[in-house]
């Protein structure tokens, strides 16, 4: 039995940061950043998902097997996305 019971206070704090990041991503989207805006939105979405994964989904406290296989999945997806942009860019 793992001893990691997460307190309500900590979970609430994570929720607070998630809501602040949501406000930031909405605010930034109203600025005219050109093609950069999609990347900024994706970086903020990545930060939000990291918080959900680490604390709500307690990936922070999981074994190396789950953490490693998760990173591998994201790596494969990143490879797909990378190859797709590579392909589309040189048409």
């Amino acid at each position: 039995m793992d001893p990691h019971i997460q307190s309500y206070k900590k979970l609430g704090g994570v929720l607070g940061v998630l809501l602040v990041l949501t406000a930031i991503t909405v605010g930034v989207s109203r600025l005219d950043l050109g093609s950069l805006s999609l990347w900024v939105a994706m970086v903020i979405a990545g930060m939000k998902s990291a918080l959900v994964l680490l604390f709500f989904m307690h990936l922070k406290y999981e074994s190396w097997l789950i953490r490693g296989s998760f990173l591998m999945t994201i790596g494969v997806l990143a490879l797909f996305i990378g190859f797709m942009f590579w392909d589309v860019a040189f048409r």
Partner: peptide
């Protein structure tokens, strides 16, 4: 949580792109 996670990406891709 995963369903929430997916929405975190759907939201900017569809509702916020400018």
């Amino acid at each position: 949580h995963l369903v929430d996670l997916i929405w975190i990406f759907i939201f900017p891709l569809f509702y916020l792109i400018l």
